[in-house]
């Protein structure tokens, strides 16, 4: 199941919504989030909302903001699959 999740994401060749992934795998969205979190812990997937800096980003889910800017866009929450090079860099 976990491997299927990774496989489907890579097969999407770009971006895929959590909803589409849930439909394709026939897995509930909440269960899917749990699986993604598992891969986040294993370092294969990055939870992008955790890469924000405290000064610039309010790191609540799916939110990027800055106190000094006149416009702040609320971004959707994203996860990205680490490429092999990124995994190596992270490992180092």
């Amino acid at each position: 199941m976990l491997y299927q999740v990774l496989h489907e994401i890579e097969k999407a060749d770009g971006s895929i919504t959590l909803n589409d992934l849930s439909i394709k795998l026939g897995v509930d969205r909440n269960a899917l989030e749990g699986m993604l979190q598992f891969w986040v812990q294993k370092g294969r997937i990055q939870d992008d909302s955790t890469t924000c800096d405290d000064v610039v980003c309010s790191c609540g889910p799916s939110f990027i903001s800055s106190v000094d800017c006149t416009f702040i866009a609320k971004m959707p929450k994203t996860y990205s699959v680490r490429t092999q090079n990124e995994q190596k860099e992270k490992g180092n």
Partner: peptide
């Protein structure tokens, strides 16, 4: 050439 995939959560 290496492209990484992205998963987006749409509310």
């Amino acid at each position: 050439k290496e492209q990484s995939a992205l998963i987006i959560e749409l509310p």
